[in-house]
Every structure is written in structure tokens, then in C-alpha cells.
């Protein structure tokens, strides 16, 4: 009974949080609701006994949404609501409902036809964390490594993009050198 109560409670909370995220015009509401919704999703992992994935969900998304907050802080005055360009509302809501129905169909169809079997049945005596590790390093080894390489590429790209002129420090230069840099920048803008 507890499981059912918890499931319906968190289902309601998650859906209402994401509803707020999509509909509100206030950047701070949207971000907070997004973070809350992501954290509430972890409850489903806990209900299903996948403790490790639940904790990872919390850790990953608190960090990820925190980074979005940092961007939100730079782009918006977070205490005022953002004026959005409204398109045709009927097309937007129609497409949204259609895609939601499609996603549900895609995932529900194999379950209804009941020919789903577990390729890797859970191992007796192994804990939750160990099972995730075993599947990750046998069946999903190549996607795992590819993801690692892509993250490495993204990291190097980020360092290269952010690292331009990192050896310069305005506080350590005298006024003549700063003027020199300014002149060069003006030339680039004018040319």
C-alpha cells in the first residue's frame, strides 16, 4: 500500500513540477520547478529498488540544473518575468499532445505484446551498485567508452574556447599595455 501511495504522490508532484516549468514565464520558477521535478523522479528509482540510480539521479541533476541557474543569472533579471513570443497556441499544444501519445505508444507497445525478456537476469547476491557495474562493463562497454571519449572532447573544446588570452592579467599590466590592447581591439572592430 505504501508503494502505491508513494507512487501516486510522486507522479502527481513530478508532473505538476514539469507543468510549471513549461508554462511559467518567470525564469526562477521554471528553474526551481525543473530541479524539483528532476529530484522527485529519483523517488521512482527508490520505489523500484534501484537505490544506486536514484542517488545518481539526485547528484547528477542537482549539478546540471545548478549550471543552468548560472546561465539564467547571466541572461535574465531573475526577479522579473520574461516576455515570450507566443506562436499559434493550437499548433503548439496539438504537437505536444501528439508527441506525448507517440512516446507512450513506443514504450507501451512491447509491454502489451508481452514478449519482453531480460537479457541479463539479476545476479543472486550481487548488490544494486555491483549489478549496474556488471552490465555497464559487459553489454554496454562500447557506449560507455564512446560517452567517455565524447566527454573528453567536450572538455578539451571547453578549455580551448575559454582559455584564450588566459595568460593575460589586466591587474598586472600597466596602463600603456592596456591601451595597446584596446587599440588593437578597436582596429579589429573598425576593419
Amino acid at each position: 500500500m505504501f508503494e502505491a501511495v508513494a507512487f501516486y504522490l510522486f507522479a502527481f508532484l513530478t508532473i505538476s513540477m514539469f507543468y510549471i516549468t513549461v508554462t511559467t514565464s518567470q525564469a526562477l520558477y521554471a528553474l526551481t520547478a525543473l530541479a524539483a521535478g528532476m529530484i522527485f523522479i529519483s523517488a521512482f528509482f527508490f520505489i523500484l529498488g534501484a537505490d544506486f540510480l536514484g542517488a545518481v539521479q539526485i547528484i547528477v541533476y542537482t549539478g546540471a540544473v545548478m549550471a543552468i541557474y548560472a546561465f539564467g543569472m547571466m541572461f535574465f533579471d531573475s526577479t522579473r518575468s520574461v516576455r515570450e513570443k507566443q506562436g499559434n497556441k493550437y499548433i503548439i499544444s496539438g504537437l505536444a499532445i501528439l508527441s506525448a501519445v507517440l512516446v507512450v505508444l513506443i514504450f507501451a507497445a512491447p509491454m502489451i505484446s508481452t514478449n519482453m525478456t531480460a537479457f541479463y537476469p539479476s545476479i543472486e547476491g550481487a548488490g544494486n551498485t555491483q549489478e549496474v557495474g556488471m552490465v555497464l562493463f559487459t553489454k554496454y562497454l562500447i557506449p560507455f567508452e564512446v560517452a567517455a571519449v565524447m566527454l573528453l572532447v567536450a572538455m578539451i573544446a571547453g578549455i580551448v574556447l575559454a582559455g584564450k588570452k588566459m595568460d593575460l592579467s589586466l591587474t598586472l599590466m600597466n596602463q600603456a599595455e592596456i591601451d595597446e590592447i584596446k587599440k588593437e581591439q578597436d582596429k579589429k572592430v573598425l576593419s
Binding site: D51, A55, G127
Partner: peptide
Amino acid sequence: VNIGILYVMG
């Protein structure tokens, strides 16, 4: 829970 430290830090 069997993921105690992860949960606490998260």
C-alpha cells in the same frame, strides 16, 4: 540503504 554515503553526499 545500501548506498548510504552516496545518498548523504547527494
